[in-house]
Design a protein around this nucleic acid. Sequence first.
DNA 1: GTACCTTTGAAGCAG
DNA 2: CTGCTTCAAAGGTAC
Length: 268
Amino acid sequence: MYKETVYSAFNLLMHYPPASGAGQHPQPQPPLHKASQPAHGVPQLSPLYEHFSSPHPTPAPVDISQKQVPRPLQTPDLSGFYSLTSGSMGQLPHTVSWFTHPSLMLGSGVPGHPAAIPHPTIVPASGKELQPYDRNLKTQAESKAEKEAKKPTIKKPLNAFMLYMKEMRAKVIAECTLKESAAINQILGRRWHALSREEQAKYYELARKERQLHMQLYPGWSARDNYGKKKRRSREKHQESTTDPGSPKKCRARFGLNQQTDWCGPCR
DNA sequence: GTACCTTTGAAGCAG
DNA sequence: CTGCTTCAAAGGTAC
């Protein structure tokens, strides 16, 4: 069933091929620089802004100066970031995510500001609304465990591909009339590989700024904090068989191919 | 009700 | 240092 959906997704992909590659696997590209170590040629914020405002059937470019958001805690590096996100990114509601963090903008006291809206990366561990604790029914140990479990979870910052997915998902859904995320993500994965280095660099740069902002907001936070919070089934289920090629990523890993550029035969 | 699927990248961890 | 694992998002599916 699942594979059928995936196959249908690929069929659709043939009708909506990426900019280059035309339904085939992407052309090999030179490896990209590490996001944490920007190389020459990384677009500045201005081109980034152009990217998010140009390729889509969106209204005329927004006058950023009229949409500036108070940013009392900004650093020099993040200033342009806020200009970008409060302006053009505002046209992409699904991408704003935590760019407009209330605490950074000192929402309380700012008229009309959604100060009461918690940070999207902070969610109750249960995913549900927090309930008052009933002291009469729980032991201290239970109380401690419960409190721990209900501590708001700070999510990981999104990486470049995740940011790309957030922006492009709606477009793919509209084009392919698909809703199943697994199939959509396969398409997005191929389109990601079909992007030029310059186009990908925009998202790497955005992701780098996301991590930077995340570090400023949560200095002591570690990705390890969220380890084990997702209940997972036995690990055997995740190990692919020798006959199943698995995902391109797994396949590349198994055959020792370049993660950035190479496509293994079974996954084409 | 919730894990799984599916993708890439970042980060953590074990050897 | 290398390689493996986990988790970020998303929403339909399966249990």
